[in-house]
Simulated assay, not measured.
Amino acid sequence: MTNLAVRVIGADRPGITADLMSTLAALEADLEDLEQVLVRQRLILAAVVATDRPDSVRRELAAFGARHGLSVQLDEVADAGTQPAETQIVTVLAPTITAAALEIITDTLGSLGANIDRIVRLARYPVYCYELRVSGADAEGIRSAVTAAGAAARVDVAVQRETLGRRAMRLVAFDVDSTLIQGELIDEVAKEAGCGAEVGALTVAAMAGELDFESALRARVALLKGLDVNVLMRIAAEVPFTPGARTLVATLKRLGFDVVAFSGGFSMMTNIVGERLGLDATHANDLEVIDGRLTGRLEGRVVDRARKGELLAELAGRAGIPLAQTVAVGDGANDLDMLGRAGLGIAFNAKKVLRDVADATISVPYLDVVLFLLGVGRSDVEREQLTRADPPKAVE
């Protein structure tokens, strides 16, 4: 038997693939492999067929190409190997991705002995995103080099092993402040209380890991003593979401994910944010309230870096979800343990302390690009919105 690689290129129209299959069937050729893609209405189809009549196949496929005005090329190829190679998924995203940027990424991959098996565009809105399927190198071996190449090319790059687990993520946990929402809730509350500058400085230092989180939190809460709780609830009801947050949460829920939030902020506020977004659960710090006003003290255990990691493990355990099938998204030092324990830890416009340890980083201001790291393309999202009985709101 002779193995022939068939490449069909040209303007697309209905019936081409059907006619090709009919031609091969009439020749009793065995179809060994098949890939097809459409790029701006240009068909690119590749197949491998096994035949004991190679001359007849060449002749009939030339006639097929003439019928449809297509370019048909054939080459003899060896048998496919039976040992599957380890593969990685390299996701590249940015507001624009130039050929020069992809040159840097692909040249780096090639220098590491990695071969690019497939490239798929996942989105061109709100950012461009390409997914590269790569073989010949392990994820840990290429992650640091490719991440550095991404920085040089001014694009975000994520490297993940291509496993069943990657396609079976089931729980996503978010930080709230500067992740699901724009800004920091406690800073907005402090402005109302007349202590915005003092609280803001403590927040910046805590999120950068320069101050112990619990000490900084208690110091900030003490400055809010006497504030009416209605102020906090009003702020939580009005705070703007990060662009793409509604689309992201609605799509994850539609896909069957459990979606939760862990916050170092205040539960009376994050509960409202969670209800507005349709989250399954939120966990945050409880403020002591007497006669409708803050006492300047906290109740119960503080939700700090360690507690966020524990909450992820606890919720995953109760749901019977392995930690390898969880995703965590955050922006500050308080999210380190949560991202570290998750199967996929994503740093969203994050402080350097978190970027340095995350599995993936996002530096664009659109939260819904998290979907691209899960292999969900923009067209998938848009089709889902069109077919929903209760379509999610457009990207904010």
Rank of each mutant, 00 (worst) to 15 (best):
V259T: 02
V370R: 01
D331F: 03
K351C: 10
D368L: 02
L344P: 01
V302M: 12
S363V: 14
V369G: 03
D258T: 11
D291M: 05
R301I: 14
T270P: 01
I346E: 12
E299P: 12
P243F: 03
R355V: 10
M268K: 15
V327D: 06
E299G: 13
G256V: 11
T295M: 07
G309V: 08
G244C: 03
V273I: 05
M338H: 06
I272Q: 01
G340D: 09
L255K: 08
T282F: 01
T326H: 02
G265M: 06
V303E: 02
G343K: 07
M338Y: 08
K253C: 04
D304V: 13
F266Y: 14
V329D: 05
L344T: 13
R297V: 02
G296Q: 06
V249H: 07
A319N: 14
F348E: 09
Y366I: 06
R246T: 04
A250K: 03
P240R: 14
A347G: 03
R307C: 10
L315A: 07
G345T: 01
L255W: 02
D335F: 00
M269T: 05
D291Q: 11
A284Y: 01
V249G: 12
A250F: 05
E288L: 01
F372T: 12
L323A: 14
K253D: 12
K308N: 05
L298S: 04
L298H: 02
T326P: 03
V370G: 00
A316T: 07
G256R: 12
T282N: 02
R355I: 10
G264C: 06
D304L: 13
I321D: 10
M338A: 04
A324C: 12
A342Q: 05
T251D: 01
M268V: 15
R254T: 15
V364M: 15
V369M: 08
D335S: 06
F262Y: 06
G317N: 09
G332N: 05
A281W: 00
M338K: 04
K352G: 09
G274F: 01
V303Y: 05
E275N: 12
G317L: 15
A324M: 12
V329N: 06
L344E: 03
A350H: 04
L248V: 00
P322Q: 11
G300M: 06
E314V: 14
L354N: 10
L287M: 02
G292T: 00
L354R: 14
K352Y: 15
E310W: 14
L371N: 07
R301A: 12
L298G: 08
T270Q: 00
L279N: 08
D356I: 15
L315F: 01
A245T: 15
R355W: 11
A342T: 09
G300R: 05
T295A: 05
N271F: 02
P243A: 10
A245D: 02
G340Q: 14
G330F: 06
M338S: 08
G278C: 13
A281L: 06
G278W: 09
G300A: 08
F257M: 11
L248F: 00
T270C: 00
A360P: 07
N349W: 11
L336A: 10
G244A: 09
G309F: 09
A306D: 14
P243H: 04
V303I: 11
D359E: 11
L323G: 13
G309D: 11
T242I: 01
V239H: 10
R305T: 15
V249L: 07
D331C: 12
D286V: 14
L248P: 00
R318Y: 04
L255V: 05
V327L: 12
V364L: 12
N285I: 11
